[in-house]
Nucleic acid binder design. Sequence first.
DNA 1: TGGATGATTGTTAGG
DNA 2: CCTAACAATCATCCA
Length: 506
Amino acid sequence: MDVRLYPSAPAIGARPGSESTGLAHLDYYHCGKFDGDSAYVGMSDGNPELLPTSQTYNSQSESNEDYEIPPITPPNLPEPSLLHLGDHEASYHSLCHGLAPNGLLPAYSYQAMDLPAIMVSNMLAQDSHLLSGQLPTIQEMVHSEVAAYDSGRPGPLLGRPAMLASHMSALSQSQLISQMGIRSGITHSSPSPPGSKSATPSPSSSTQEEESDAHFKISGEKRPSADPGKKAKNPKKKKKKDPNEPQKPVSAYALFFRDTQAAIKGQNPSATFGDVSKIVASMWDSLGEEQKQAYKRKTEAAKKEYLKALAAYRASLVSKSPPDQGEAKNAQANPPAKMLPPKQPMYAMPGLASFLTPSDLQAFRSGASPASLARTLGSKALLPGLSTSPPPPSFPLSPSLHQQLPLPPHAQGALLSPPLSMSPAPQPPVLPASMALQVQLAMSPSPPGPQDFPHISEFPSGSGSRSPGPSNPSSSSGDWDGSYPSGERGLSTCSLLPRDKSLYLT
DNA sequence: TGGATGATTGTTAGG
DNA sequence: CCTAACAATCATCCA
């Protein structure tokens, strides 16, 4: 059973796998969650703070169901850069709170929305109570959005980037709608088999598609274009590279994607690649420049290494083989080792890990960057719910994630182990921690840069499964790691947070 | 400036 | 069993 949720596939309910979703929701809730009235925020300190949920989500779970929000809570990610930013203790908090107040929820909310929609539906179906309690946030979000949506779709909102905070609410709704909505909206209308992939136009989906299209049009989102185009791609596809040839450095976004995707999945296991991509994109938008810069820095560093490796590689090729063969053979000639450098750095980057660090969190709090969050939220509208009410939820959620999130066994052990002991054994993905971290990070600005990595090292944030690099702590690839020694903290914090939340939640 | 390409992860189908 | 393709999105590179 594919759990894949395609955006369009609203039919969450259909999914058997709803469980996962349920979990995700839980995480969300935990994290951000507010139990209705108050949300716990993870605290680096270990003390869970209760956020006054500004919002109470309780109200309408129903609509929420459709959307499901987001358990995902995106991390705010954080980036390391965020870490440096602030420093308020409350970073974590801030995430929750800050955002909430601002109403800016970071992209996460957005994510949540997307995923949530699916999940939510599932969850709702499965755990109504959860929804009532936890969902509230989501529900509200959704609800608000929905309402807006229903009332009048805010068409314009879509433009992620530029959304104003004020618009946020509207936007968020619209966006959510657009994104999720399409899915979810559809969902309620007719639960198309989720299974159907996005591309596959399910007959039932037709309506959805239309709506989606409309949304897109209104919003002017990019996505729509993507679909058509992609298939066209087929022809070219990738060309094989020489194994030996140094790999190009991963882009900042790619790094970010790595970091966040794990968390997202952790929260929303059912989330499809598309969903995750959207969420990550929203998060990316929401990220503050600082954070982005941090990633960019890493990228640049990797690039430098890459260039070096490339030069060496080419040189080797030239020397070894005649120019003609050069490239083809180059691979052989080149020592793989060179190639490695670039990548490793990348892995090292794991933003999430960085998030974990307490400092980050604090930083986050400090300033985090509410602005960034706001941006994200606003821009994306993802957070509609957030915007409307308390953004905090989104972040807060993240913490919870840890608990629920399934961490990779090894990863979990490292990160969670401490905390885990407390919490549920079964944890799938690493995400939770990472997510939480991210969120925290988002909250507080941390010094961009390598610092983040350290954290990463400890957390296998990103790639729970694959995560090549990030996870590996030891290596903590020199550069990156070096820069961030604090990784440990991050973990600790993460673990702590989750626990707290989890406890509360539970 | 815009198009093309590659990368992110996870799943699946085909060879 | 391995590889390629695909999903959505962004960054980067080149013309």
